Amino acid sequence: MDEQIVVAGALFSADRLLVAQRQRPPELAGLWELPGGKVATGESEAGALARELREELGIEVSVGARLGVDVALSSGMTLRAYRATLTGGSPHPHDHRALRWVTVDELDGLPWVPADRAWLPDLAEALSCERT
């Protein structure tokens, strides 16, 4: 069985990061994550992330460099984060309970989806660089 890649987008605006609150599954509902989703067969990771953010948030993005480490999920799935730049639209939570722009000082205080916690140092560093 091939490895399933799941992509997540780190969308920065000035010194803030867009985070999304999960609606489902029940064990993750209410926790915060970087929005994204599964890469379909024949789709590039960047193409999948752009599609997922269009479907979930109603926005257009350009996908940039990888951020942080690969995170192993259960059953042969790997989670990867990429920087994303908003190129069109305004984010709306079509597939999430809520969206929120957070600063570096708010990162640690959020109840994160466990897998996304691996990226907190990288996100904090990126947000600190965005400030300057």
Results as ranks from 00 to 15, higher is better:
residue 1 M to A: 14
residue 1 M to R: 15
residue 1 M to S: 15
residue 4 Q to A: 13
residue 8 A to W: 00
residue 9 G to L: 07
residue 9 G to R: 01
residue 11 L to M: 15
residue 13 S to G: 13
residue 13 S to Q: 15
residue 13 S to K: 15
residue 15 D to I: 09
residue 17 L to T: 04
residue 17 L to E: 05
residue 19 V to W: 02
residue 20 A to Q: 00
residue 20 A to E: 01
residue 21 Q to V: 06
residue 22 R to M: 09
residue 26 P to D: 14
residue 27 E to H: 12
residue 28 L to W: 06
residue 29 A to P: 11
residue 29 A to K: 15
residue 30 G to L: 03
residue 31 L to R: 10
residue 31 L to P: 00
residue 34 L to N: 01
residue 35 P to C: 09
residue 37 G to S: 01
residue 38 K to R: 14
residue 42 G to Y: 13
residue 42 G to T: 10
residue 43 E to N: 14
residue 43 E to R: 15
residue 46 A to Y: 03
residue 49 L to F: 05
residue 51 R to H: 05
residue 53 L to K: 02
residue 55 E to G: 02
residue 55 E to L: 09
residue 55 E to W: 13
residue 55 E to P: 00
residue 59 I to T: 08
residue 60 E to I: 14
residue 61 V to W: 05
residue 61 V to H: 02
residue 63 V to E: 02
residue 63 V to G: 01
residue 63 V to L: 09
residue 64 G to K: 03
residue 67 L to K: 03
residue 67 L to A: 05
residue 67 L to S: 08
residue 70 D to S: 10
residue 70 D to E: 13
residue 72 A to S: 08
residue 74 S to P: 10
residue 75 S to E: 13
residue 75 S to Y: 14
residue 77 M to T: 11
residue 78 T to M: 12
residue 80 R to W: 00
residue 80 R to L: 04
residue 81 A to I: 07
residue 81 A to F: 09
residue 82 Y to K: 09
residue 82 Y to I: 04
residue 82 Y to Q: 12
residue 83 R to L: 09
residue 83 R to W: 05
residue 84 A to L: 10
residue 85 T to K: 14
residue 85 T to L: 12
residue 86 L to K: 15
residue 86 L to T: 10
residue 88 G to R: 09
residue 92 H to P: 02
residue 93 P to F: 14
residue 94 H to F: 15
residue 94 H to S: 07
residue 100 R to E: 06
residue 100 R to Y: 04
residue 100 R to C: 07
residue 102 V to L: 11
residue 102 V to M: 11
residue 103 T to I: 05
residue 103 T to S: 12
residue 105 D to L: 14
residue 108 D to W: 10
residue 110 L to Q: 08
residue 111 P to G: 08
residue 111 P to C: 14
residue 111 P to Q: 13
residue 116 D to T: 08
residue 117 R to K: 14
residue 118 A to V: 06
residue 118 A to P: 10
residue 119 W to S: 04
residue 120 L to G: 04
residue 122 D to V: 00
residue 123 L to T: 02
residue 123 L to H: 03
residue 126 A to R: 12
residue 127 L to N: 07
residue 128 S to G: 11
residue 131 R to D: 03
residue 131 R to C: 06
